[in-house]
């Protein structure tokens, strides 16, 4: 089975890595789009530093939005496990990522067992899981949250809030209220408004937010990036030291504006990568054929399937080890990146 290609020509992993290393060395402004497990991110960020690259989550817009709350405002949060055991009122705000819907359904159906337990009240802004009472004011979640926050704080909103009295009663009765959200279902300011709702409730009662990231791997990558460089993704090493700029190092923008001259894409996902024709590219992908328009393709396996992996889990709120479901000899994304790093001149 082929492991790597230069153009459409089958080569060994080492040959592909050598070619990739040459391209990285020759590039003046390489950019990385990353999607992978924690070890893949660790390897990729070390490579980015060595070659002066900027890096971003693959399709990093939603991650940037999820991160903005933590860089710009802060939050009161609760771990998912603690929510499961304690929250007797759960509010699902906006749409949830598909990956989280299953266990969230299970969670809202199970009773809390701490603090005397009892049953859970469930509310939603938007369609949520389809169950629970709807809180609504206006057309979107951002409008509803604004009206809700105004009303809960004893101020006026221009539009009435549906089920506000029921929600008030539930809040009053609740020992602990959890608001579940995702960057996929709320915009940046909507998330900040939600933060405000939670902060207001905490003046007298307990409540917290639970982020279910649109992509668990993206959030894991953000954690790795933050400890390795001090910054979340959209960080660049163009000047040697890490610089963080969510606008400047938006890799899609850098490509669109013609700033980047080499694109390294790391994706352990199953969907085919669509690379622009004109861009010089290195693809590290879960694929059995060369990626269209890639100068170099290195085939990798899937994290947690072909190889053991450490990943962020929005179900536990921290990193977990995922054993290989079907161990294979495919390279991991980390190994592929390390092959390239080893081929760099010292």
């Amino acid at each position: 089975m082929a492991v790597a290609w230069i153009g459409n020509r089958e080569v060994t992993g080492e040959q592909a890595a050598r070619r990739a290393a040459e391209l990285l060395v020759a590039s003046s402004c390489p950019v990385f789009s990353l999607n992978g497990d924690v070890h893949a991110w660790r390897a990729a960020i070390m490579l980015a530093e060595r070659v002066g690259a900027a890096y971003d989550q693959l399709d990093g817009g939603v991650l940037a939005r999820e991160l903005a709350l933590f860089t710009g405002k802060g939050a009161i949060t609760v771990a998912p496990g603690e929510m499961r055991r304690r929250a007797d009122c759960i509010v699902i705000v906006g749409e949830l990522p598909a990956v989280s819907r299953g266990w969230m359904k299970e969670l809202v159906a199970s009773p809390p067992d701490l603090s005397g337990g009892g049953k859970r009240d469930v509310f939603r802004v938007g369609t949520g899981l389809g169950s629970g009472k709807e809180i609504a004011a206006g057309d979107g979640a951002a409008q509803t949250l604004a009206a809700l926050r105004a009303q809960l704080s004893g101020r006026v909103s221009a539009v009435p809030v549906k089920n506000i009295e029921a929600f008030r009663k539930a809040l009053e009765k609740a020992a602990y209220t959890a608001f579940v959200y995702s960057g996929a279902g709320l915009d940046e300011l909507g998330i900040e408004m939600l933060q405000g709702v939670v902060a207001d409730i905490n003046k007298t009662k307990r409540a917290a937010m639970v982020l279910l990231p649109a992509s668990d791997d993206a959030w894991g990558g953000a954690l790795v990036s933050t400890w390795m460089t001090g910054f979340a993704p959209r960080t660049g090493f163009g000047r040697g030291m890490p610089e963080y700029d969510p606008w400047r190092f938006d890799v899609a923008r850098m490509i669109a504006d013609g700033e980047a001259d080499l694109h390294l894409v790391m994706s352990a996902g199953k969907q085919a990568l669509a690379l622009p024709r004109k861009m010089n590219a290195i693809a590290i992908a879960h694929t059995d054929k060369p990626v269209t328009h890639a100068a170099v393709t290195i085939r990798i396996g899937a994290a947690g399937v072909d190889h053991e992996a450490v990943r962020y889990s929005s179900r536990t709120g921290t990193l977990v080890l995922v054993e290989a479901a079907k161990p294979s000899s495919h390279l991991s994304a980390m190994s592929a990146i390390r092959l390239i790093a080893e081929a760099l001149p010292c």
Binding site: F70, G72, G74, I76, V78, A79, G81, E82, A208
Partner: peptide, 9 residues
């Protein structure tokens, strides 16, 4: 003026 408060496991 910003902070993160987390109720962990």
């Amino acid at each position: 003026k910003k902070s993160v408060i987390h109720d962990g496991d």
